[in-house]
């Protein structure tokens, strides 16, 4: 297949959008946490948990939307645990985050195995189906790419402007940003830093879980153990790439997904000269590259990683 053909092919762009969605949710979730001053390395585990819990909800007879809410709720719960550790107790954000990832992943696998003990072929659910938006979906090319997607994809695209609006145009968003820049300023203006940070981490974690759930409830129809496969870490890299800006996060996720979609197709078409593993490495290599490129320019939240302890002498 000619490269040019590939880019003119609507299927390619639609696939890009699908690959981007979990990254959009995850990156925005991480971004909200970090904007409030909290690094959340629980993301990989929380995405796994979201993928598992949303899926199992539906598998056990729940409907898709409540399943999604359930995934978000479970994600927020793990966000709360992380908050108690790093916001209230001021413990190492690195270690707590890794611990959360370990715990959430282990619990996901345990729960899945317990509820579905003997499964040789993974059971399936009926995931979100593509919904064509009338008229718009009939547009050539654009219609196929943007307007014949599943509701979760629309949700992902809608949530970006929403996050931008909240972060930059509302008093709450200002408080979140301030929590990541100078928590003492929040405290001095009578706002509870711990609540703001906890809220942000819970909301962010809920988004991460929804990102995980996208995989089991929209992109695929089953839960596999290695499903998240480093996507969470890629999101952490994308936040740096995006320089902590939600708009750039969307661009980053799309760019990334585009290269990934291209990689899959190139892999299929390459005449086995390049081993497939090297194609699979691409997302991880790109993530590192993305951080390298943006490292010098990034304007990180000044109070990132700094715990705030109320009423303590400094």
């Amino acid at each position: 297949m000619d490269i040019l053909d590939l880019f003119l092919h609507a299927g390619f762009w639609a696939a890009t959008l699908r690959i981007a969605c979990p990254l959009i949710f995850g990156t925005l979730g991480e971004l909200i946490c970090e904007r409030a001053g909290v690094l959340n390395l629980g993301i990989e585990g929380i995405m796994t948990m979201g993928a598992m819990s949303g899926w199992i909800w539906v598998y056990k007879g729940g409907d898709l939307w409540t399943g999604l809410l359930f995934a978000a709720f479970v994600g927020a719960l793990f966000g709360l645990i992380h908050s108690i550790f790093v916001v209230y107790l001021g413990l190492s954000q690195h270690v707590s985050g890794i611990g959360i990832t370990m715990l959430a992943s282990a619990l996901s696998f345990f729960t899945f195995r317990m509820l579905l003990p003997s499964s040789t072929t993974p059971p399936k659910i009926v995931p979100f189906q593509p919904v064509s938006i009338p008229i718009l979906s009939d547009l050539p090319f654009v219609g196929e790419v943007f307007f014949s997607q599943t509701p979760m994809t629309y949700l992902a695209l809608a949530i970006v402007p929403l996050v931008i609006y909240i972060l930059y145009r509302t008093p709450l968003g200002l408080a979140v940003r301030m929590a990541g820049e100078n928590p003492m300023a929040l405290e001095a203006q009578g706002i509870n830093v711990l609540s703001i940070r906890t809220g942000a981490v819970m909301l962010g974690s809920a988004l991460m879980a929804v990102g995980g759930a996208y995989l089991t409830m929209s992109a695929f129809d089953a839960f596999y153990f290695g499903m998240i496969n480093g996507r969470g870490w890629i999101c952490v890299a994308l936040v740096i790439f995006a320089s902590w800006r939600p708009g750039k996060a969307l661009i980053g996720a799309l760019l990334f997904a585009g290269i990934d979609a291209f990689q899959v197709r190139a892999q299929l078409s390459s005449s086995a000269k390049i081993p497939y593993q090297f194609f699979l490495m691409l997302p991880y290599v790109l993530s590192i590259l993305a951080m390298v490129v943006m490292a010098r320019r990034a304007r990180y939240p000044k109070a990132l990683l700094t715990p705030f302890r109320r009423g303590e002498r400094t």
């Binding site: 709450l172 408080a175 940003r177 301030m178 820049e181 203006q189 304007r299």
Partner: peptide, 27 residues
Amino acid sequence: QHFTLADNLTVLDNIILGTQPLTSWRI
């Protein structure tokens, strides 16, 4: 004594922080 300001935000942002209800939909 140690100013409680955020360098990366504007003067206005620093001043109005906390003056409008957090539930409000618009600054």
